[in-house]
Design a protein around this nucleic acid. Structure first.
Length: 494
RNA sequence: GCCCCCAUGGUCUAGCGGUUAGGACACAGCCCUUUCAAGGCUAUAACAGGGGUUCGAGUCCCCUUGGGGGCACCA
């Protein structure tokens, strides 16, 4: 058993939580639970310009829906709070000052204008856009004097100008970069707020985080982060950089526009949409877990608790993964099929209700077994089972005409079927099946033709759950009404 | 432009020097069947290319190519 891990999910509340974040949070959760450690939720909200007020709530709802409960966070507190960076300004400042004091950071008085001009210049000359170090050698006493006099300043990290920095990533092994390619990055802005590079390192240290699991977009700044941590002399966490998700084609990552378009096909990369689209959190968890992680060469169905038991960092895969919604649908169908009838009924009900249907629980529990294996998403139930709840169905005339038969022949068959149904003491599968099959025999038509007519008449659809079961649930009276209507329609066509 | 990362079928992946390169989704066919599903069976399909190292390379090294990410007083 590994040592208890303290992991953190540290999103910034700037938009919707997407699948990539969900997967990061999942792995955080799994590692914490597996090792008996803690899962910390920290909100990185120091960018006030991009702040979205509803985002934090959405984030927590998403995590809860997925079943990923956290141990410490802004809503529940904990021993290392506050858990919102916007409430930790003084802490960052203290540590920044410490770095300045030890000569590993410095005050920089360069204006944004000078910096952008500098960058422009460097770009033109095809140079890497790095700070030129103008303020790097200003004596500390002088810098303090200027700062005290009210001059605007930022605090920059003093990167070594020679040598190399080597950092170990759990998925990729050692990564080495030349220090001259690392910028003297700004740690504290002129408004006194720390930037991510300082804030996150400080928080991870103060919160005693043992494993930093985050997206691979952070890989390029990993050496900087290591340098900062080493400048403080802090213990280095285990770095785990997860690969990004690519669009289904595997070519490039999904653009904002493409993400928004997805919803038209009933898909979404935003966690908040998934529930309404009829997806099960179990399916999301299983699917997302397997994008970048595997257990062995054949197991692929994992409940959240299976994952807690089986998860391990060394089975993580560093290569980018294309999002495969088809497989997502497969998982969702799988989990729908594995639900008990009462449970599925409970989950499907809100969708039927939302569609405007009056849903009786006992009746729903009869319907669920015959639609269960036909559902890919919960909201498929609306289309698939709507005819159970509608007052009347209006089958298209051409659908009522059986393949290979004339309208008149179809009408004749419908009429005979109607008579049989009328004559039954009760319309049950048991009572109806024999005589209706006998009708097929007698008429010399195929089951497909005869039952097809009845199906369309009774359900209004060419495709439906099993016919006899459906009729039993609908009830004799209504079935007869619908059959009469179909006969009338067919006769008109004749 | 510079830096970093990645590379097994269409997609997700197993493989950690010796395998008939395994599984899953998708696709196709067959079976089952009153439609649609579900289920069962079968088939098609991969080590990006080139150099090394080694008795032996999908596995180790280098280059090329392709893909991805990053270069803000955003995170």
């Amino acid at each position: 058993m590994e040592k208890p891990a303290r992991v953190r999910f540290a999103p910034s509340p700037t938009g919707h939580m997407h699948l990539g974040s969900a997967r990061t949070a999942l792995y955080d959760y799994l590692l914490a639970r597996k090792t008996g450690g803690q899962f910390v939720l920290r909100i990185e909200d120091t960018d006030f310009k991009r702040y979205v007020p509803s985002a934090e709530e959405e984030l927590m709802n998403g995590l809860r829906w997925l079943g990923l409960d956290w141990d410490e966070g802004p809503d529940k507190g904990g021993p290392y709070g506050p858990y919102r960076q916007s409430e930790r300004k003084e802490i960052y400042l203290k540590y920044a000052e410490q770095l300045v004091e030890s000569g590993q950071a410095y005050y920089c008085f360069c204006s944004p204008e000078r910096l952008s001009k500098l960058r422009e210049e460097q770009q033109k000359q095809k140079q890497p856009p790095l700070y030129d170090g103008l303020c790097r050698e200003i004596p500390l006493a002088e810098a303090r004097r200027r700062a005290a006099a009210g001059e605007k300043y930022t605090i920059r990290f003093k990167t070594p100008k020679s040598g190399v920095t080597t950092v170990r990533d759990a998925l990729r092994g050692e990564i080495t970069v030349e220090n001259r390619t690392i910028d003297d990055y700004i740690l504290v802005k002129s408004d006194g707020w720390a930037l991510y590079h300082l804030a996150a390192m400080v928080d991870d240290y103060e919160m005693k985080i043992t494993h930093v699991i985050r997206g691979s977009e952070w890989l390029p700044s990993l050496p900087l982060h290591a340098l900062i941590i080493r400048a403080f002399g802090w213990p280095e966490p285990e770095w785990v950089h997860l690969s990004v998700f690519l669009k289904p084609s595997g070519k490039g990552k999904m653009s904002k526009r493409e993400s928004a378009e997805l919803i038209k096909d009933g898909h979404s990369i935003f966690v908040k949409d998934l529930e309404a689209l009829g997806y099960l959190p179990e399916a999301v968890v299983n699917w997302v877990a397997l994008m970048g992680w595997s257990y062995d060469d054949h197991t692929e169905i994992f409940s959240l608790s299976d994952l807690v038991e089986k998860f391990s960092l060394d089975k993580l895969n560093p290569s980018p993964a294309a999002i495969n919604f088809t497989k997502f649908d497969y998982f969702n169908g799988y989990y729908i099929r594995s639900l008990s009838v009462p449970e599925l009924a409970k989950r499907v009900k809100p969708f039927l209700t939302a569609a405007g249907y009056q849903v009786d629980d006992d009746r729903l529990e009869k319907i669920v077994p015959i639609i269960q294996e036909r559902l890919n998403t919960l909201d498929d139930s609306v289309e698939m089972a709507g005819f159970f709840f509608k007052d009347e169905v209006v089958p298209a005339g051409e659908d009522l005409v059986a393949k290979g038969l004339t309208p008149a022949e179809s009408a004749e068959l419908a009429e005979q079927a109607l008579e049989i149904i009328r004559s039954l003491p009760e319309l049950t599968v048991h009572q109806a099946e024999q005589p209706l099959r006998a009708l097929v025999e007698r008429s010399g038509k195929t089951p497909q033709q005869v039952f097809g007519i009845i199906r369309v008449a009774v359900t209004g659809q060419r495709v439906s759950p099993p016919l006899f079961e459906s009729m039993e649930i609908i009830g004799k009276e209504i079935v007869i009404k619908r059959m009469e209507n179909a006969v009338a329609v067919l006769k008109k066509l004749s």
